[in-house]
């Protein structure tokens, strides 16, 4: 049997003395220190910040639930609009219009339950911070979390670029890139290898999130500020106008939501205890694999 069998391939009852996600002792596993205290603090700070930023962002979006391309708002022809309108039967329906297509989203988007009453609001009250329609408080939360989030992202990225050790743990090696097809097949079979280093897919994903999505969130966010526009007009040019920046801010935000769900799913199926422990205490159990070439990842090419 190959090593690195995940909890799905070999499930154990919850009452087992050994957590289901940990490999058998006979497979020669050991605990390593995977995440530094800084990384762990950064991870959980970001987790809190991103939730506050997302929910307060949806509150702000609700104040004008339409997105446009360019410098200004072409009110008659938005790229995306979420609102309520009368359906064929005269009843109010919640709808999302995207580039000409209309989707009925009653109950969630456009028209949803607001304290026991169906009300027009783009995102429902459970998704916004605060729950009530309250733009100023949404802005206050957004800027508070932004002031924690943005400096910590910038500091972390600088450190990651400067530190040789961090570079090695985030940027994929050529060997890892070549192994990506093999890693994909393993993932599709729910075979997760517990190793000290991330695999190529993980690394590419983290590079995309850390060096593209997070900086883009900050930059498109800054581009919506009129004072920043005066200070750094290049930003508006870069994104093709303030309304484009606002639309991209929304698209990048939902890309992060997408990453979040994939991330959670993989944390759950690839050994939730081991993964969570590594991000809380720093300790991660890896499986020592036999030295024979058959089981080596790079021999499968």
């Amino acid at each position: 049997m190959p090593s690195g069998i995940g909890p799905v391939a070999n499930p154990k009852p919850d009452s087992s003395p050994r957590p289901a996600s940990e490999p058998e002792a006979s497979e020669s596993s050991r605990l390593i220190k995977r995440h530094s205290l800084g990384t762990r603090l950064w991870h959980w700070t970001n987790f809190l910040c991103l939730i506050v930023l997302l929910m307060s962002g949806l509150q702000i979006f609700n104040a004008h639930p339409a997105l446009y391309w360019g410098e200004q708002s072409g009110f008659s022809d938005p790229f995306i609009a979420i609102h309520a309108q009368a359906g064929n039967d005269g009843e109010q329906r919640g709808v999302v219009r995207v580039a000409g297509y209309t989707l009925d989203t009653t109950g969630v988007l456009g028209l949803s339950d607001d304290n026991g009453q169906l009300r027009q609001r783009a995102f429902p009250r459970w998704a916004t911070l605060p729950g009530d329609k309250w733009l100023t408080m949404g802005r206050n939360w957004h800027f508070l979390a932004g002031w924690i989030f943005a400096p910590s992202v910038v500091a972390y990225l600088l450190y990651t670029v400067i530190s040789r050790h961090r570079r090695g743990s985030i940027f994929p090696t050529r060997r890892q890139l070549r192994a990506i097809p093999r890693t994909l097949v393993d993932h599709a079979r729910f075979r997760f290898h517990h190793e000290a280093d991330y695999n190529g897919i993980q690394k590419l994903t983290y590079v995309l999130v850390l060096f593209v999505l997070l900086p883009m969130m900050i930059l498109t966010g800054l581009t919506m500020s009129p004072s920043i526009n005066a200070a750094w007009p290049l930003l508006t040019e870069l994104f093709g106008g303030r309304q484009s920046a606002r639309t991209l801010h929304f698209i990048f935000a939902f890309s992060l939501v997408g990453f979040f769900f994939v991330h959670i799913a993989l944390v759950l199926v690839s050994g939730v205890f081991n993964n969570l422990r590594s991000m809380v205490t720093g300790r991660y159990r890896i499986t020592e694999r036999p030295a024979g070439p058959v089981n080596r990842e790079d021999s499968h090419e």
Binding site: I60, F61, A63, H64, A66, Y68, E71, Q72, S73, F75, L135, R139, M224, P226, R242, Q243, R246
Partner: peptide, 8 residues
């Protein structure tokens, strides 16, 4: 730039 998010 309106605080609501639109521009004109």
């Amino acid at each position: 730039d309106c605080v609501e998010g639109w521009s004109c």
